[in-house]
Amino acid sequence: MDTKTKLKHALADELNLPELKEATFDDDAPLFGQGLGLDSLDAVELVIVIQKHFGVEIKDMDESRSAFASINALAAYIDQRLAA
């Protein structure tokens, strides 16, 4: 399973967002605000889910801001960190 698919499944299950598993979901849609509609509590949850499922720790707020832009951005960020 590629990183993006694994990420979408993890977020769908942990954040109770079944729409992430739908084929029609736009992977470039913003995760926060308009788009998926996540908020600051979800941001904390996201950090934990990513560390738990991928072993990637997000500490830098500037990095996380761009990484949390969309599913595609987050998957790319995880791949980049895993390759480093």
Binding site: L15, I48, Q51
Partner: peptide, 10 residues
Amino acid sequence: LAGDAFTSPI
């Protein structure tokens, strides 16, 4: 199992 940092706030 994983420490307090892994406890879901929800």
